[in-house]
Every structure is written in structure tokens, then in C-alpha cells.
């Protein structure tokens, strides 16, 4: 690991100001992704500004009836929170489907959103990777690409976003509150992560020095009928091949409203807006769920090793919506 300076900031303002003046510095929270990548020299910041104790570590009610999750809330605490479990169960399930107990205890809400891809070529500094070294080429496009993207990829990068939590938050219309050198802003989660395009080195739309301070969940009643389903190669402690977070509002057998987001298929949590659109006002039937999934997956462009993700995603979407239509009746 390359030498670096460790700084514990006094408050959010101080942390943001310190980073703004240090172009190669990084925020450190739980460290469960940054510290391991530094050991591999995939990431080489010259300074770490510790923010773990600076932002809120509580889940609090908002005036509009929604919830605000402090960026420092550990994943394990968020998963166990009774308000999250009863009103946004998909989020709790997604958190528990990720990592191990040890990692969930350290990892924070803000850090989880910003975790990096597990593309093996990004993690292997001996191979070309446009995300790590822009212009060097993508080793995954012709390499081992079973775990890679089927939607929204580019000729420069086919990596996937690894977070489970972020997929649930994408389905649940979360807003991300950010503080940076230019002040505060509030970003719909849909606009936090980005597709690779010709700048795969940028995972998110955040600017250097911007710190996630909290995440807001809106007060939507039918989000209590939500679910996260993850398919992976073993029952625990593995990243998703495909995952889905969905919420379903159903009345007299008709889909009133629906949210669907996919994990493991794209450079960002993939909000399935086409499938949602196709389902609103339609009977909640297996055939309609399947047809909606097909509409979403029409644009899928699988790679050599991951064509299986297309039918897998269709099946996981269908099964999850069926479960929700039975449970939410």
C-alpha cells in the first residue's frame, strides 16, 4: 500500500474544505471498499479524510412522513431498523443480502452507495481498464465477462455496480443529500450513479469534495409491499448475478402503481421504467409481469459469457412481482 496521510476532520464543513484543496484526497467512512482497494493499489489517494463520525448515524422521521437516513448509519443498523423493516422491507432485505456480518457492521449508508465495481479487471492493476486508466482499453469486453453488464454498457466499459442497498433505494425513489464546496444539493438516486459512456472512470455525478450526508426515503404507503430478491452463485456472501427490488400497489387485481429496479445488470442500479409503465393499470398476472420484463429487456446486449442474465432477469422480475401480488392482496 502506498503511504498516505490520515486526517480526522472536526465537522462536515471542515472535511469538505480539506478535500476541496487536495485533488488526490478521498473521504474515508467504513473503509470496507476503499481500504481493500488501496491495499491492491487500485486506488491511491495521498490523503484520507475520516468522515465516519461526522454525519448523522440515526434514522429519523421527516415532516412529510418520510425517513432520513444519516450517511454514517451502519448497514447492519439500517437493516435492523424497525421503521425500515415495516415500511421499506426491500431495503432491509437488500442490506442483509450483501457482504458479511463483519462488513455490514463497518460499512455505512453513504459508503455503500459509492462502492466500486467488482469487475476483476478493474481490481487487477496488471490488466488494461478504462475505468482505472482511461484510454488503456477494456479487458472485460473480450475477457471473462459472466458478471458484467447487459444493459447500458458502452464500448469503453461493461462493469456493473455491485451494491444491493442502492438497488432497493433506486426502486424506493430515494433522494441523496450532498454537501460540497458549492453548498448543499439534493439528487434523485437515479441521477447519482451514471452509465459509463466514454467516461467510465466516473462512477457517479458527484464532484470532487462532495460528501453524501444523508438519504431520504419518501412516504409512499405501498412501499411496505416491497421485496428484494437476489440470485448469486452461492446462498450467501456473493455479489448478485441478477437482483431485483420491487414495490407493488395492487387493487382488485389491477396494478395501481409499481417500482422495479435491477442489480447486477448495469453500471448503475437499473430502474426498469419501461416495465413499470407497461404495468400501470393492467391486471396483475404472470403473463403481464413477464411481458413487462420482456419490454424492459428488449435492449439488452449480452456479452459472450452472460446471455443467461436476460432470461434470469425476466424470471426474477416475474417471480418477485408474483410474490408481491400474492402478499399485497
Amino acid at each position: 500500500m502506498r503511504p498516505y496521510k490520515y486526517v480526522r476532520a472536526q465537522d462536515v464543513d471542515g472535511a469538505v474544505a480539506t478535500l476541496a484543496e487536495a485533488p488526490n484526497a478521498a473521504f474515508l467512512a467504513g473503509g470496507t471498499n476503499l481500504v481493500d482497494l488501496m491495499k491492491l493499489e487500485v486506488m491511491t489517494p495521498d490523503m484520507l479524510v475520516d468522515v465516519r463520525r461526522l454525519t448523522s448515524d440515526r434514522v429519523e422521521g421527516l415532516d412529510d412522513g418520510g425517513l432520513r437516513i444519516g450517511a454514517a448509519v451502519p448497514n447492519s443498523v439500517l437493516a435492523a431498523d424497525h421503521k425500515i423493516r415495516s415500511r421499506y422491507p426491500a431495503l432491509s432485505q437488500a442490506l442483509l443480502a450483501g457482504a458479511s456480518g463483519q462488513l455490514r457492521n463497518l460499512a455505512t449508508t453513504g459508503g455503500n452507495l459509492l462502492q466500486h465495481t467488482r469487475c476483476v479487471y478493474w481490481q487487477d492493476v496488471t490488466t488494461p481498464c478504462n475505468k482505472r486508466e482511461p484510454g488503456s482499453g477494456c479487458s472485460a469486453i473480450e475477457g471473462h465477462n459472466k458478471n458484467h453488464a447487459i444493459l447500458g454498457a458502452s464500448e469503453h466499459c461493461v462493469a456493473t455496480h455491485p451494491s444491493d442497498m442502492a438497488v432497493a433505494m433506486a426502486a424506493l425513489d430515494a433522494f441523496i443529500n450532498v454537501q460540497g464546496p458549492e453548498g448543499e444539493r439534493r439528487i434523485p438516486i437515479e441521477e447519482l450513479h451514471r452509465l459509463p459512456g466514454d467516461e467510465p472512470q466516473r462512477d457517479t455525478t458527484l464532484q470532487h469534495g462532495e460528501l453524501i450526508t444523508s438519504v431520504d426515503l419518501p412516504p409512499v404507503e405501498f412501499f411496505s409491499n416491497s421485496k428484494y430478491r437476489k440470485v448469486r452463485e452461492r446462498a450467501s456472501y456473493a455479489f448478485a448475478l441478477v437482483s431485483v427490488a420491487a414495490a407493488l400497489d395492487i387493487e382488485d387485481g389491477i396494478v395501481g402503481d409499481v417500482r422495479i429496479a435491477l442489480g447486477g445488470v448495469a453500471h448503475k442500479p437499473w430502474r426498469a421504467t419501461k416495465a413499470e409503465e407497461a404495468l400501470r393499470g393492467e391486471p396483475a398476472s404472470e403473463a403481464n409481469f413477464r411481458a413487462a420484463a420482456d419490454i424492459e429487456l428488449e435492449d439488452a446486449q449480452p456479452l459472450r459469457d452472460n446471455a443467461f442474465k436476460v432470461p434470469l432477469a425476466r424470471n426474477v422480475i416475474t417471480r418477485t412481482l408474483l410474490d408481491l401480488s400474492e402478499e399485497g392482496r
Partner: peptide, 23 residues
């Protein structure tokens, strides 16, 4: 040293963590 194997598991302020990832 990557937080994957758990062989460094300790309690930190009462929580089970991988000590290799804590600075």
C-alpha cells in the same frame, strides 16, 4: 487483508468487525 476471510474478526465498540479494514 481484504475483509473477505474473517480471520481478523474482533469486537470494536461491541460490534464484530474485520480488524484489517479498520485504520
Amino acid at each position: 487483508e481484504q475483509g473477505e476471510c474473517g480471520s481478523c474478526s474482533v469486537y470494536l465498540d461491541g460490534e464484530l468487525v474485520c480488524a484489517c479494514l479498520v485504520l
